[in-house]
Write a protein that binds this DNA or RNA. Structure first.
Lengths: 345, 345
DNA sequence: CTGAAAGCGCTTACAG
DNA sequence: CTGAAAGCGCTTACAG
């Protein structure tokens, strides 16, 4: 067991005086040799410091790796820090746990090499990707499922953003507001702060656009002109990313400050609750707030957030199940649930 | 570009009438051929639907994969749901983002095949693992760094649990309590609820044991007999896992209910704040609460949690940096910071 | 029940 | 500047 040379199937076979095929069979196909021989070989291999066939060789030979890759929209750190992406990843993970697969996480901006997508048995593409033709090349020929994005020829898992936010906004507007403000997430290419309607990205470029459309519909129904509503935008779905925008919004003179704040993500809404309370504003008495996503954190703390629950865990689990052939591989739109909490009763 | 046959370096070379070496060089070693030739080859390859060398072949040949693996203590779902593990993973991810590596997540209970650890260029082992000799076999010969665990021959990243919890408990006890209770995390093999001292795991089997020892020291200094303090245990560091234990503890008759609750993790402490408030108990007036970890959620909400901040992100980042040879590969114990919030001022 | 041989897709000295 | 050859570690028909 000296660290002189790495053991391989071949060297083990040579030492034992059997063929490589037999050693391989001992590890992978118990039925191909006698029990006694198998145990003898396994024991001898262990004694030699050989702990089983190397996956790299196996992978090249068999074409399967036991790995599912997730191609994330952002870099790894952001994706793991964003509650929604993180719940989604956990959902994928939950399915893989049951199936004995490993999870490979790949950042949105891949270098030339592709980061190893090509070792995956299947790939989940999450969210918007800059150069989507690049993505298609990378996953070419490999089973793939998209989440929150449409890619030609690839089944997608979506959530019913439009009707969900329509229902939520209708609820919020039953209490007639003086002034409404909307805080979106990635509604524009990059502008952070208050924005105009002309800067909006189209619905195929950002999920939140559909949510905004639902809200506009509800505003119109309530005889409020969407153009008259202040529209703000945040580009990072993290506490730190939301703070400056929400602070600017709340720090307006009382006369122009909203009394209804419709946020297009829970993270934005939770940041708003937090900053409002620090400023002595009562939620919902002085300021009613709604979110979108239904992340766990928002349902635990007081005041409980009024929001739409999209089950990110289920989304991830379903996409993984499709890749593992536990579910038919076809596009699905999952239903959401209106959660009426205390932030906008 | 018909989907008849997958393109390989060899077929591309054949079609172009050059050698495989030249095509490989066109992709990997620009200096090995004329610029004109290179562009010609790249363009022709693209036209043929070949998007670059397959990592599987490359990996077998070069021995490098560009992948860092994290061997987690629990299954993937749990690890991604636990704030502390999740921040740690994000820290590793942050370092990999900067270096262009991919992240492979492997569940604690690996099947025979090893789940692909052997493709990783380096592995991070996090937390306690059942069969650690198995772990050592799996990572044999591969660069490895351990976090929160000691493995023979492998550098480890730790946090100063004992002095940190000693300082925290000293602070908490400056306000003399009537009755103290401690809620631990994984202090025993599996018992959930109130436990006795005899069931405790030793410090090399659980991180929280060192935290407990620090608290006992502070209690003794304050002339409180540790044996007189109620000791409870939780085995899952999630909201759902904490609820039953914390509820049982709070639902005791007022005469035996603690007025100081020392929790060995923030998740436990946050659950305690939540359930206490639901029961009309004021924090800190009726019940003082401390945590451990310093997770972001605890520092955002009111009352802000009094706790010890261990920077999990930095832990992960450092371990990854060691693997990428950006830091010397040697054991480190990181310092923590006492955070005095409102839950135990 | 066991073994010899081919080949998965690639890169790298090396020779020309 | 380009190509022929070896080989990374493995599994799988196939022949015996």
């Amino acid at each position: 067991m000296s660290p002189t040379k790495r053991m391989t199937l071949k060297t083990v076979a040579a030492r034992l005086g059997v063929s490589a095929a037999t050693v391989s069979n001992a590890f992978n196909r118990p039925d191909q040799l006698s029990q006694a021989r198998r145990e003898e070989i396994l024991a001898a291999a262990a004694a030699l410091g050989y702990h089983g066939p190397d996956s790299r060789g196996r992978m090249l030979r068999t074409g399967r790796s036991g790995i599912i890759a997730m191609l994330l929209a952002e870099n790894l750190f952001y994706s793991l820090s964003d509650s929604v992406a993180s719940e989604l990843i956990a959902g994928v993970a939950a399915q893989l746990d049951q199936h004995g697969h490993s999870l490979m996480l790949l950042p949105g901006r891949l270098e030339q090499s592709g980061g190893g997508v090509d070792m995956a048995d299947g790939v989940i593409v999450y969210g918007l990707h800059g150069a989507s033709s690049r993505i298609l090349d990378l996953i070419a020929g490999r089973p793939a499922v998209a989440i929150d994005i449409d890619l030609p020829g690839i089944p997608a898992v979506h959530v019913d953003n439009y009707p969900a936010s329509l229902a939520l906004a209708r609820h919020a507007l039953r209490h007639p507001p003086q002034r409404v403000a909307i805080v979106g997430l990635r509604l524009t290419q990059s502008h952070v702060g208050q924005i105009g309607l002309e800067a909006l990205l189209s619905a195929d470029l950002t999920v939140t656009r559909r949510r905004l459309d639902g809200i506009f519909k509800a505003l119109t129904e309530a005889a409020i002109d969407p153009d008259s509503v202040a529209l703000w935008n945040v580009d990072q779905n993290t506490y730190e990313g939301c703070v400056p925008v929400v602070a600017a919004l709340l720090d307006q003179p009382a006369a122009s400050r909203p009394d209804l704040l419709i946020c297009l993500s829970d993270r934005v809404a939770l940041t708003a609750i937090d900053l409002a309370e620090r400023r002595g504003l009562r939620v919902p008495e002085d300021l009613r707030i709604t979110g979108f996503d239904g992340i766990a954190e928002g349902q635990r703390r007081r005041p409980r957030l009024t929001t739409v629950r999209q089950d990110s865990t289920t989304k991830g689990r379903l996409a993984a199940a499709m890749l593992l052939d536990l579910e038919p591989r076809r596009s699905r739109t999952l239903e959401t649930e209106l959660l009426i909490g205390d932030s906008a009763p």
